[in-house]
């Protein structure tokens, strides 16, 4: 409890200092992964609608904690809230609004391999469990016909800090590898069977870049902006797919087709069924109370969400995020409209 009060006090202080500089209409806190696109939306929206939004990218965990304590108007997370977390939220029912899509890619360092590496979920599971230890293992070679794979040892690099990126990646491994599901499982921090831990995307990418034979996972946006090599993955339909913007949107679309009408959108889209779907894709969510205390704030937040779902999606690809598929956007717009009620 004391830690919570302390962190709450710290953030209040931070909010107070920024608030005194310019009046802020809405405050939010949470995930770092969508921060680049969120901050673009916030600044575009401030120019357009004169609504100022202050967002602290303190991590998904912190965002959920602060939303539960009602110290912010909205939260943001890369992993959906668990039932236990939802039950602890002080302001009542929390809605999950997917805002945009991201992906996690496998980056590797094989200086002598020119062709893009192909990997499958089963093989990835074995690599990260430490059961495939050499690059020329027959199971990797079977996926990469005609590629001269080195005899090098595989060095696994993972995130050492708790992160949504780890959550998405381990969520995928849990979906495709029964041994992983029964072992480390999924989470923002898991007990990694093998490998080195790097802090942040840059920590993982830095080690992969330096050590020949290394493989690690990073966000797509980070990999593209830093021109890292990344693998094509075999999806649930058996097709090898590169992590393109279209392939990520397709993953969400193929999952959304099968959702119930009243879904709460706390759904994983890893290992999606679509033929062209990239398998390690994920929503990133805005967390909002269904009934906010302040009707004015509820209306402003609803308007912002509608803006982000419509105009905001267009700027997603420029920052290497994938826009939501049309069928999802339509349903979310209706839900945002219902937010205005107030409490």
């Amino acid at each position: 409890m004391r830690i919570r009060t302390l962190s709450v006090a710290l953030v209040l202080a931070a909010v107070a200092t920024t608030a005194s500089a310019q009046s802020v209409d809405l405050t939010g806190a949470g995930a770092t992964f969508p921060y680049p696109i969120y901050s673009k939306w916030f600044s575009d929206y401030a120019a357009k609608a004169r609504v100022r939004i202050n967002y602290q990218s303190i991590g998904s965990g912190g965002g959920i904690r602060q939303l539960s304590e009602e110290t912010v108007d909205f939260g943001a997370s890369d992993a959906p809230m668990s039932d236990a977390e939802l039950a602890k939220a002080k302001g009542g029912k929390v809605l999950h609004f997917p805002m945009v899509l991201g992906a996690v890619v496998l980056t590797y360092n094989l200086p002598d391999v020119q062709k893009t590496l192909k990997l499958s979920g089963a093989v990835l599971g074995e690599i990260f469990l430490g059961r495939i230890t050499k690059w020329n293992d027959p199971r990797i070679a079977a996926l990469n016909a005609g590629v001269n794979l080195p005899t090098k040892d595989i060095l696994v690099v993972h995130r050492s800090d708790g992160s949504g990126t780890s959550y998405i990646f381990t969520d995928y491994l849990t979906a495709v590898s029964p041994a992983w599901a029964g072992g480390p499982g999924k989470g923002k921090e898991v007990q990694w069977p093998v490998g080195l831990g790097g802090k942040g995307n840059e920590g993982v990418a830095g080690q992969v870049r330096q050590i020949a034979g290394a493989v690690g996972y990073v966000e797509l946006a980070y990999a593209r902006q830093n021109k890292l090599a990344y693998a094509e993955l075999q999806n649930a339909s058996g097709v090898f797919v590169a992590p393109t913007i279209e392939a990520i949107t397709e993953a969400a679309a193929s999952v959304a087709k099968k959702l119930e009408k009243d879904t709460d959108y706390r759904v994983s889209i890893v290992n999606a069924p679509g033929k062209k779907a990239y398998p390690i894709s994920s929503f990133t969510w805005l967390l909002v109370y269904e009934k906010m205390t302040d009707a004015g704030k509820a209306r402003k937040l609803a308007d912002f969400i509608k803006y982000a779902l419509k105009d905001g999606q267009k700027s997603a690809p420029t920052l290497d995020y994938a826009p939501l598929p049309g069928n999802v956007v339509k349903q979310l717009e209706q839900r945002a409209a219902a937010l205005t009620s107030g409490r």
Partner: peptide, 17 residues
């Protein structure tokens, strides 16, 4: 590789829910 107590706290605190 190893770990230290201070790194452990720094790594995990922000996402520990």
């Amino acid at each position: 590789p190893g770990y230290t107590m201070a790194s452990l706290i720094a790594n995990e605190f922000s996402e520990a829910t």
